[in-house]
Design a protein around this nucleic acid. Structure first.
Length: 647
RNA sequence: GGACCCGUGGUGUAGCGGCCGAACAUGCCAGCCUGUCACGCUGGAGAUCGCCGGUUCGAAUCCGGUCGGGUCCGCCA
């Protein structure tokens, strides 16, 4: 576009620019006859000699350009030199395609642009992987290294567009409900949520550090004290823990907090918001149940063995104790008897149609169960004729086995899997088996979005190592009103927690929202009274000094009139991944890190400049730093790393 | 911190002790071609098998280590 006279766009909000009048996705039959300019990437080139076809691509779509040697010799020469991924501008006339050459697989397939001019704006090397074949598998490391090329490809592009639509719908819903979007700082003080903090050394205050937020928890509560009523933020959060497919060191939360609310208030809003957002972003995907089912923690664990149940299929856990105990003392099987004796549970699930499972399959399931702490896995199968088989038949007897199958509603050809253990292990193992089998047997409809709530979690969990009550969820969570008297120790001194304290029985005003078996988010109504909060912190093992060191500001704020308040945080990355049918949140992040926390594109982290250490008064004493500093081939620009003397 | 899987031309795969002087597809380069749309046809270039060491007469192939990527447990809500 060297000396072209820029065309003034009609409207600054229009997609038209001096380089283009239209994008590559918008021309239709009705545009035939228009003389216009376009710009984009060469998606594919089909050179037939006298005639060259170029599929011109941008993020809006693809338009076919025709260049005829006789009509436009110069354009033809340029088109001839062009290669995939060259950036070109084209001028020409929109024409309806010849009869029989329409392409129904393109939105713009009824027309083509007959080029009068083709200009190469930028040449391109052969890309390291196919941009124009969306289904071609590529090693993820290569995709991450050249993420900007990966994003050119249709799947990544569509997922980022979906994520953008998701965030937009979230914002819309919140603004309509009177929420105020407020940013909170990234350089803060550690607000312990259980995870390791990322630390940023301070140059102005030598020897001290900022912590990056694990979440804006305290800040949003302070905004409630500040009277901001309804706050939300699409907030970046940081946790320095080991990575997983659904965990990155930095991730994004929808963070919100509301004043003058009870649990229902928050859940009702979030539910309405989630329904609206889902329907806006993915109207074609049905919601399994509206309103969302609400399970108490106890019920969820009892029925699904999980606090984030996938309710797209049944296969609920069945308590077998009543059948086993029926008509007498023991069950006949010592393992079961001993477990029941000490307050354990014997429960099972039915794998439909797996009655013919091979020895190998059973062994595999047993190994699976052991991995999560089960001592074993008992199975009872029913063959097609209804005959019962089990390795423990000699202990339990055929009658009991049949009764177990009946109790579990297992029919001919089904397989009953039984775990006997303490209540937590039994639930956990069966819950995981349920998810695993649900997946393997294809019981969950992948098209459906199944949201549900789990609420009323236990307030604390005994931490035997540190001799304290750990908040199961969030250290600020409130206790359900009728359990408030339980927030005490047996000794009467809240600073001396013990495993048999009444506090262990207290339930929290706490709720999680799950989607298709994934935890989407969680929140609670908080404690807004200083006295109660201090007592809860004491139970959680904070000494007075430490409490005031860590939360002093907040405790003080609560002395200035704190409204009852509560909120929630939802994982945007997970939400986007689920909506995009992905099991890995990297697939919905533009520039994610590898599972060892590195950025293969920017080559981060890297060893800092010695001068930066010096300025901060730091010295590195660990083992030699890993690669990074050396291989900065891809690193562009000075890109302010740490420190930096700005302002 | 631990376990497992993967690493072969640009990309995706095959080969898993000698037949490999490494195969296939695609991509790339050149030539031809006026209606293609994963255009077609003809010809060509391109990897010593992540790296280091070992076993062996002989290693892409076996063993050990190491680096990188992934999954899971622990950790993390």
């Amino acid at each position: 576009m060297s000396d072209a006279t820029p065309v003034q766009p009609r409207n600054a909000f229009s997609l038209a620019t001096p380089y283009r009048d239209v994008t590559c996705g918008e021309l239709r039959a009705g545009d035939a006859g228009r003389q216009l300019r376009m710009a984009g990437w060469v998606h594919r080139r089909r050179d037939l000699g006298h005639l060259i076809f170029i599929d011109l691509r941008d993020r809006y779509g693809i338009t076919q350009i025709v260049v005829d040697r006789d009509e436009a010799p110069e354009a033809h020469a340029a088109a001839s030199r062009s290669r995939p991924e060259f950036v070109v501008s084209v001028e020409g006339k929109v024409t309806e395609r010849l009869p029989g050459t329409h392409n129904p697989s393109l939105e713009t397939g009824d027309v083509e642009v007959r080029a009068t001019r083709v200009e190469i704006l930028s040449e391109a090397q052969t890309p390291p992987f196919y941009i124009n074949e969306p289904d071609a598998p590529v090693d993820e490391a290569v995709r991450l290294r050249y993420r900007y090329l990966d994003i050119r490809r249709e799947p990544m592009r569509d997922r980022l567009l979906l994520r953008s639509a998701l965030v937009r719908a979230i914002r819309d819903a919140h603004h309509r409900a009177g929420f105020v979007e407020i940013e909170t700082p990234i350089l803060i003080k550690s607000t312990p949520e259980g995870a390791r903090d990322f630390i940023v050394p301070s140059r102005l205050q030598p020897g001290t550090v900022y912590a990056l937020p694990q979440s804006p928890q305290q800040l949003k509560q302070l905004l409630m004290v500040a009277g901001m009523d309804r706050y939300f933020q699409i907030a970046r959060c940081f946790r320095d823990e080991d990575l997983r497919g659904d965990r990155q060191p930095e991730f994004t939360q929808l963070d919100l907090e509301m004043s003058f609310v009870q649990e229902q208030t928050v859940m009702d809003f979030v539910e309405a918001m989630a329904i609206e957002v889902s329907r806006t972003v993915l109207p074609e995907r049905p919601l399994l149940t509206v309103p969302f089912p609400r399970f108490t923690y106890e019920e969820a664990m009892e029925r699904f063995g999980s606090d984030k149940p996938d309710i797209r299929f049944g296969m609920e856990l069945v308590d077998l104790a009543p059948v086993l105990r029926a008509g007498g003392e023991g069950t006949g099987f010592r393992v079961f008897d001993e477990v029941l004796e000490v307050g354990g549970r014997v429960k099972g699930i039915v794998a439909p149609g797996m009655g013919g499972a091979t020895r190998r399959e059973i062994d595999e399931l047993t190994a699976f169960a052991r991995r999560y702490g089960a001592r074993g896995l008992v199975h009872v199968s029913s063959d097609a004729d209804g005959a019962v088989h089990s390795p423990v038949a000699k202990f339990l007897g055929e009658e009991r086995l049949s009764a177990m199958l009946r109790a579990a509603a297992a029919g001919p050809g089904d397989l009953l899997l039984v775990v006997a253990d303490d209540p937590a292990v039994t639930a956990d193992v069966l819950g995981r088996l349920r998810s695993e089998l649900g997946e393997r047997l294809g019981l969950a409809d992948p098209a459906v979005l199944a949201y549900c709530w789990v609420y009323r979690f236990p307030m604390y969990q005994w931490d035997a190592d540190n001799h304290r009550w750990d908040a199961t969820h969030n250290p600020f969570s409130g206790v359900v009103p009728e359990d408030e008297p339980l927030l005490v120790t047996a000794s009467g001194d809240p600073y001396r927690p013990a495993p048999d304290d009444p506090a262990g029985r207290a339930r929290a005003m706490q709720y999680d929202i799950a989607l298709n078996g994934w935890e989407l988010g969680g929140g609670s109504v908080r404690i807004h009274r200083r006295e109660l909060l201090e007592r809860s912190f004491a139970l959680q093992g904070y000494s007075k000094e430490r409490m005031h060191g860590l939360f002093g500001g907040m405790l003080e704020a609560f002395d200035f009139g704190a409204p009852p308040h509560g909120g929630i945080a939802l994982g945007i990355d997970r939400w986007a991944a689920l909506l995009a049918d992905q099991t890995n949140i990297r697939e919905v992040m533009a520039f994610p890190k590898t599972s060892s926390g590195t950025d293969l594109m920017l080559d981060a982290p890297s060893a800092p400049d010695p001068a930066q250490y010096e300025e901060l008064g730091l010295r590195y004493v660990g083992p030699a730093p890993a690669a990074g500093a050396a291989g900065a081939a891809t690193g562009t620009g000075p890109g302010g790393t740490a420190g930096g003397g700005a302002a």
